[in-house]
Design a protein around this nucleic acid. Structure first.
Lengths: 106, 106
DNA sequence: ATCACCTATGACGATAGACGCATTATGCCC
DNA sequence: GGGCATAATGCGTCTATCGTCATAGGTGAT
């Protein structure tokens, strides 16, 4: 039985991934290093919002940045999220198939 | 690049795991089938709250229930969450070790 | 130094979700 | 059927977080 503290840490990490905006940013950064202007254009979010979300992703260790003068270039770090999504995708697919069988049986 | 709909699904799933209360319930149910009265005593939450959280976990396919008359017996379903937590735990540990190295270097 | 540009942060409204209380619905037992 | 236990739901409150605007901080060019 995990300690409450550990459960708290887990939940905080999953909370990071519980927002489509952040997943969207992560996916863009998976394509390669990107500057903020590009992220603004790609997502339609305000600059301040993107800055905050990147900050959260950075504190979670999912993203890193290199400064190019005034500009900041961001990139995804590690494959953890890909692996997590892959596992989840399997479950989602599996559940849809089960629902489909229900319909066929009826 | 995943579709916005898929990202939405992912985020909704991760949101389920973003609450310590739900992780706590899941962990208890991992120990084996349990009735609600036991969960109330173990967690200290109200009956209504536990009922709702179990409902969410059920809709996500993480939990199933068998009725025993008026009583309901719940149990965890599948190992997905364990696998996800295992991956996350690796990352958390890895980051703490990195921080530790920072201190040692200083 | 001043200007233009980019990022980080404070303030704010809007909204979502946690959590409990009270009530209702549901299933046993007599 | 009535009475009793258990589970589900309507409602209210409160807190946290999203997302924006405005602003402050920082960096390079002229």
């Amino acid at each position: 039985m995990p300690s409450p503290q550990l459960l708290e840490e887990y939940s905080q990490f999953f909370r990071i991934l519980s927002e489509p905006a952040r997943l969207q940013l992560l996916c863009h950064l998976k394509q390669g290093p990107t500057d903020v202007a590009t992220l603004i254009e790609a997502t339609g979010f305000s600059q301040s919002h993107i800055s905050r979300q990147l900050g959260q992703l950075q504190r979670a260790g999912l993203v890193r940045c290199d400064r190019d003068g005034a500009r900041t270039i961001w990139q995804a770090e590690g494959d953890l999220v890909d692996e997590l999504c892959h596992l989840v995708q399997g479950r989602l697919r599996q559940r849809l198939e089960a629902q489909l069988q229900q319909f066929k049986a009826a």
